[in-house]
């Protein structure tokens, strides 16, 4: 095992983490500001990927597809918020879970009905295709590098938005006391719609970015949704910083676990068994990390104590 391979795997972990961050940032904002558990967040990720695949197919431009994914997911998010979720803020979490679970089914079957059961095609743009040679002799995919850069830029943008702008002040105020900011004359309904559309757009962006190197198909959002929930629980619900740290922690743990555990087990069992046991344990690893974090920090790394 060379140092180059380890470094490449660390980059892979970072890239996976950044992708998870795009997904969990919206989820944690919506939960933090509105107190809403949105299981349909994965469907917005799928909407983004489908929009990107369709528009890229029509126009031949990946970038037009990327723009379309942001818009389509934001519009879908805003519509869902205005039509369905608005009625659920005061309800119990269980009602929210039930309603947003229904939304998953409607999005999935609706998409299948409109676009068929076969996966769609979306490829990386020619300018980001292929590999670059990094220091230490690492040959790395240009596109994955671009995902890392894009995710970091979004993270920076979010920190500025939340910490430095008027909208950010309102979002933070909404998080701590929603009655009070409503009383101060802030249009809380619009604020909620904007926050939800922002979270949806980020999920759509993640869907489009990932769709180019994965399969654009019905149900693609649900596995990512579960990981995104793990991320926000580790990071602390409502905290963007927590989502970033949690996402990179989960991305690193998962990638390095998949890589190192089978190698480790090979020292004392045969190849096939080591790979099988290592892989099984690696898929549990992030949940073990989550449990460990919760033992020491019950409200997550950056969460406010309940």
């Amino acid at each position: 095992m060379s140092a180059g391979l380890v470094a490449e795997q660390l980059l892979n972990g970072l890239q996976f983490g950044v992708m998870l961050f795009l997904m969990s940032a919206g989820l944690t904002l919506v939960f933090g500001v509105m107190g809403l558990i949105n299981l349909a967040h994965g469907s917005l990720y799928m909407v983004g990927a489908y929009a990107a695949a369709l528009v890229a197919g029509w126009t031949g431009s990946f970038w037009a597809g990327l723009a379309a994914s942001l818009m389509a997911a934001a519009i879908a998010g805003a519509l869902v918020e205005m039509v369905v979720l608005r009625r659920l803020y005061r309800r119990d979490h269980l009602d929210q879970v039930l309603a947003t679970f229904a939304l998953i089914l409607m999005f999935s079957e609706g998409t299948r009905w409109l676009f068929g059961a076969f996966p769609l095609y979306l490829n990386v743009p020619a300018s980001l295709s292929g590999t670059v040679l990094l220091p230490m002799g690492i040959v790395y995919s240009k596109y994955r590098l671009a995902i890392i850069v894009c995710g970091m830029a979004v993270a920076l943008g979010l920190f500025i938005l939340i910490g430095r702008t008027r909208l950010g002040v309102r979002i933070r105020a909404g998080q701590s006391d929603r009655q009070m900011i409503a009383a101060l004359g802030v249009d809380i309904a619009t604020l909620y719609t904007v926050v939800f559309a922002l979270g949806a757009a980020l999920a759509g962006l993640a869907g489009a970015l990932v769709g180019a190197i994965q399969s654009v198909e019905v149900g693609m959002g649900e596995p990512v949704l579960i990981l995104a929930f793990v991320v926000i629980v580790i990071g602390g619900i409502g905290s963007i910083k927590g989502a970033l740290v949690g996402a990179i922690l989960v991305g690193m743990t998962d990638t390095m676990g998949r890589f190192l555990l089978p190698v480790m087990f090979k020292n004392f069992m045969d190849g096939a068994t080591a790979s099988s046991v290592g892989s099984a344990l690696a898929s549990m690893l992030i949940y073990i990390v989550m449990a460990t974090v919760l033992i020491f920090r019950p409200s997550g790394l950056y969460g406010k104590p309940a």
């Binding site: 095992m1 060379s2 180059g4 391979l5 490449e8 795997q9 892979n12 890239q15 996976f16 040959v139 995919s141 994955r144 990932v210 994965q214 399969s215 693609m220 596995p223 990638t255 998949r258 890589f259 089978p262 190849g271 096939a272 790979s275 099988s276 290592g278 892989s279 099984a280 690696a282 898929s283």
Partner: peptide, 21 residues
């Protein structure tokens, strides 16, 4: 090399890196 991946896994960066190595 012989690798078992997670069922439903969609990212193969770690596996591809090992094939390369």
């Amino acid at each position: 090399g012989e690798l078992y991946t997670k069922l439903g896994q969609t990212d193969y960066a770690a596996e591809i890196a090992q094939i390369r190595a």
